[in-house]
């Protein structure tokens, strides 16, 4: 049994069908990178997996359990999410951003939650920022805090929705380094990204999406290194300079 199973996923916004039938499995410890042009449905797909967008049709399973409106809050505690625009809580300190979830959702004691938060901040290289507020951090630092916030819930899988797209170029590396370290530690990750270098180096599997379908999938050396489909070739010829 795969950790995540996506079966026949479709999503429409009004008359616009963004996802036209997606089937995909993700194994435990696997890093899946989703690439493709804007409007191809990558972000919609990842947002459907944790029901931030409600699928129009199809089923998604985590550890064999069907995700529904009823169990979604419980499922999301096992499924972290990192957003393009960070979405840190601006009225909370960095430390509180990391403890608010565990304390309120999982009932972890404050002392324990803070101890863990400090450990996680150390892991993302921000030990000295615990008492800062998000607005005082650079974009790269904010995104590393956001990753630590997701980790604080002890998720089984983390969804990354274009985590470096809103960053200044010189800050992309520090965020990708944290993600690489996570991948090496065996975290299951689904990453929507435009960073082909990252996908090539870290992904176990890459899928190329276009027009609401998965056009091509496989190992990164095949999909990125030696694409078979004309649309994949066309896209990669534009992004790989």
């Amino acid at each position: 049994m795969s950790m995540i199973e996506v079966k026949g996923l479709k999503k429409s916004f009004g008359d616009l069908e963004v996802l036209k039938g997606i089937d995909q499995d993700v194994e435990k410890g696997e890093v899946l990178c989703i690439i493709g042009p804007s409007g191809s449905g990558k972000s919609t797909m990842i947002r459907c997996i944790n029901h931030l967008e409600k699928p129009t049709a199809g089923e998604i399973y985590l550890d064999g359990e069907l995700i529904t409106e009823e169990n979604i809050d419980k499922i999301r505690t096992k499924m972290g999410m990192v957003f393009q625009s960070f979405n840190l809580f601006p009225h909370k300190s960095v430390l509180e951003n990391l403890t608010i979830g565990p304390m309120n959702v999982k009932g972890v004691k404050q002392e324990e939650a803070e101890k863990k938060a400090h450990k996680l901040l150390k892991r993302v290289g921000l030990s000295d920022k615990a008492n800062e507020f998000p607005r005082n951090l650079s974009g790269g630092q904010q995104q590393r805090v956001a990753i630590a916030r997701a980790l604080a819930m002890d998720p089984e899988v983390i969804l990354f929705d274009e985590p470096t797209s809103a960053l200044d170029p010189e800050m992309v590396g520090e965020v990708l380094d944290v993600m690489k370290a996570l991948a090496n530690e065996g975290m299951t990750m689904i990453v929507v990204t435009h960073e082909m270098g990252f996908a090539k180096e870290v992904a176990d599997k890459v899928i190329f999406m276009d027009g609401g379908y998965i056009v091509e999938e496989g190992a990164p050396k095949d999909v990125i290194g030696n694409p078979q489909q004309p649309r994949t070739q066309d896209f990669l010829s534009k992004v790989l300079v």
Binding site: G101, V105, M153
Partner: peptide, 21 residues
């Protein structure tokens, strides 16, 4: 920002808890 509700929900908070906190 709408992302605030999404971030709160993605941590497993219910809608009411996200509103409150």
């Amino acid at each position: 920002d709408k992302g605030q509700m999404e971030a709160a929900r993605s941590l497993g908070m219910s809608k009411g808890m996200a509103m409150k906190l």
